[in-house]
Design a protein around this nucleic acid. Structure first.
Lengths: 325, 325
DNA sequence: CTGTTAGCGCTTTCAG
DNA sequence: CTGAAAGCGCTAACAG
């Protein structure tokens, strides 16, 4: 016991937790030997005693058969989340789902480790194992997933607003025959982007020239665009509800021997890295990835701090105009 | 205490740790009530008692001023790493560097949490805080970073071999005036890719037509390629040591009004997602991202299991031929 | 095979 | 302001 070095006992504990309650003098003393001896409080012991671990769990199902593992900009979110959490002295524990199956496979891991709260990044699935967390009263913040409950909140981009931005841009550019390629259809980002898009179209007296659904990935955008190109009259602009699909669409247009944006204008959604890399540059509705990560950290910290469950955060999107529309 | 429910005491512990030592009968009994009561062993208590946490730390410095945060295919590695670790019941703790600065900022976090080992993903930096881990004897496995020590090993792609593959491909295609855009120069992946590349060129009696250095990122590839295009005679093929730079190079070529691969062939390195997305498809030397993650998990598990420090793992690369060369 | 008994290192009343 | 003492839940000898 490093504490032996000094003269005190649990005063050491006070020095590290409630320094203001210790006399200037003994504080210095203790801090002195602590530095000297290289003393570090042991988190496990502390967790055992307090029931708080200073760890927030990350629920991210990396099962390749499920959608969450391939979140389009996880890395950006993660960086922001981790940085913001670190600033509060919180660590991020990537939870390994408990081996024994059943709806408690995340919950068990959470409980065993006394994780204080979790952030869920699951790209749209309604996994019972995730819902179990909410039911158990674990403070949760979900990303890109409506998720509510007494101790649950979520962070999302303004998908509806983003859809409108896309529509307005296309309309301003003079397009009248406009189509969209939606995301997988029961999912809420897909639904909201579509709603925003069609609403803005309607305001301009326009109606959708087509709306095949994709699955967010490139291939589906490619296929959907081919369908759209077969229409007669052919749409002059299409809004792909995700950048990967937009890239697929771009490819289909090129293969058809048409030009972007002259023959067909394309706008995407997300603003992932490829958007800048691919010629002629993808015009797209950008999500604020850093903002999402930061907001998630804030929401969690607030809840851990005992605050009331914060309301959902809806982050504004921004239209980035590049060459494709 | 859930154990009260039964009749036993620390036998419960045995049931969960060394079941073979408990009679079939009592085992069933204990397991029975455990399930009933929803008993879960508490990891903190267990860690406190054993000094082992079943957590491996991930050292990933997300400081935007440092290189590691933007590892090109972190997500793929992470998925593989986490899955493999999960299968062993190990969790991944993303370490928040300890707030007080100094070379022990990761080490302190590791010690406080009794993390069993760490994987370092730091894209080439020689951070004293990382070296401190090695010195302290923490089992380490580094990715893409030569890292040795009594309890340290690393996983890397065969950069030299990859360089050769690129060169051979270009030579086979009949190119004779061949240049390269290297990575940032003192870093070892940059050096090794270059070495492999020039060696294979030499075997064919060729010598480099130019070798400007980039910094892995797009912009630098663009700039470097412009230099190369100004050469007279102009190279007919260039090997960019990273895909992002290759995309930059591609752009420079297009802007110069030249065609890929007819006027200038380009091959990259990494095989990141854009390689497939960008027309005409980037021919590139693929790294085995999943293999890297899995190998890292294996190395760590081996060390934790008490095995001798495994030798470095060098994973083969694979040339993927697409449209650009 | 199964109890008993100490701790693991820290926090937390409760006195002083 | 600072000790003393009792636990947090589990593992690890050490007897039976």
């Amino acid at each position: 016991m490093a504490r032996r070095s000094g003269v005190s006992v649990a005063t050491v504990s006070r020095v590290f937790n409630t320094p203001e309650v210790v006399s200037q003098q003994t504080r210095q003393l203790v801090l002195g030997i602590a530095a000297e001896v290289g003393y570090l409080p042991n988190e496990s012991a502390r967790t055992l005693a307090t029931k708080k671990s200073n760890m927030v769990g990350l629920v991210w199902d990396t099962d390749h058969r499920r959608p969450g593992w391939r979140h389009p900009f996880l890395q950006d979110i993660l960086v922001a989340l981790k940085s913001a959490l670190s600033a509060q002295g919180l660590h991020l524990l990537m939870l390994a789902p408990d081996p024994s199956p059943g709806p408690a496979r995340f919950l068990r891991a959470v409980q065993r480790h006394n994780v204080d709260g979790v952030v869920i990044i699951d790209n749209g699935s309604r996994d019972p194992a995730v819902l179990a967390l909410a039911d158990a009263g674990v403070p949760c913040v979900a990303l890109d997933l409506r998720f509510t409950g007494p101790a649950c909140t979520y962070i999302t981009s303004d998908n509806r607003g983003g859809g409108r931005q896309a529509a307005r841009h296309l309309i301003e550019r003079g397009h009248r025959r406009i189509a969209t390629i939606t995301g997988p259809m029961p999912t809420y980002p897909a639904v909201e982007r579509l709603e925003g898009f069609t609403a803005a179209l309607a305001e301009a007296g326009l109606t959708l020239a087509g709306a095949p659904a994709g699955d967010w990935y490139l291939e589906s955008g490619y296929t959907a665009m081919k369908q759209l190109l077969d229409l007669d009259p052919r749409p002059t602009a299409v809004f792909a509800a995700g950048d990967e699909m937009a890239v697929g669409a771009l490819r289909a247009v090129h293969e058809a021997g048409l030009r972007v944006p002259e023959d067909v204008a394309i706008v995407g959604f997300d603003d992932i890295e490829v958007a800048t890399l691919i010629p002629p540059g993808l015009t797209t509705v950008a999500q604020d990835k850093t903002g999402i990560g930061t907001a998630a950290a804030e929401a969690i910290t607030a809840m851990l701090g005992g605050a009331a469950t914060p309301p959902p955060t809806v982050l504004p999107t921004e239209l980035i105009v590049r060459g494709s529309a």
